[in-house]
């Protein structure tokens, strides 16, 4: 189980590469072996992508081994800190609560996009802004309403009046 989890990023990369590779086989009016054709270059790129996936799996395995062996030899904290630093960016730790919070907001945005087709644009946008600010908390209702209506007016003036962009 642990191994699988450690391999997840690399495996995902390989799968994505394979999906794209399979699509290069079905391209019309393109020959895979003709460099001037439409599918030669994409196929080449997918192969590179799959190779990077393999590399990442190997790297992750090596790292894991290094970590476990380090723990066995009760390495000093300094060393571990250094190892983490070599990874680049700091590890991003997120709780399930945070994931849920973000996911719900994303769903809210999707609902907003869906509602544009049903409600008039200004109403949908205003509602979205108000609900967003309520959901994210910490904004007084006065600011909420003022900002929402103000933004909608600005959006309306710029996009609809000036640029004649008509929403469905």
């Amino acid at each position: 189980m642990q191994t699988l989890k450690a391999m997840a990023p690399g495996l995902t990369m390989i799968i994505v590469g394979l999906v794209f590779l399979s699509q290069t086989f079905v391209m019309e009016r393109a020959s895979l072996f003709d460099p001037a054709g439409g599918s030669f270059l994409p196929a080449l790129i997918t192969i590179v992508m799959i190779i990077t996936g393999v590399i990442v799996i190997i790297q992750d395995q090596v790292k894991k081994k290094a970590k476990t062996s380090m723990m066995e030899t009760t390495a000093e904290e300094n060393l571990e800190n250094e190892a983490q630093h070599a990874d680049g960016a700091e590890d991003i730790q997120m709780t399930w609560k945070q994931y849920a919070f973000i996911f719900i907001y994303f769903v809210l945005t999707i609902l907003y996009v869906l509602s544009i087709s049903i409600l008039p644009f200004s109403v949908a946008t205003c509602l979205f802004l108000i609900i967003s600010m309520i959901y994210l908390r910490g904004v007084s209702w006065k600011t909420n309403i003022l900002v929402s209506i103000g933004s909608v007016i600005v959006f309306y003036l710029v996009f609809t009046r000036l640029f004649h962009i008509i929403f469905p």
Binding site: P120, F121, C126, W141, I149
Partner: peptide, 20 residues
Amino acid sequence: KIKSSKTTALLFILIISLLS
């Protein structure tokens, strides 16, 4: 605070929709 703001919010939405 949120609850008390709801009626105000609805009122504003009504105005906006009339305008639009």
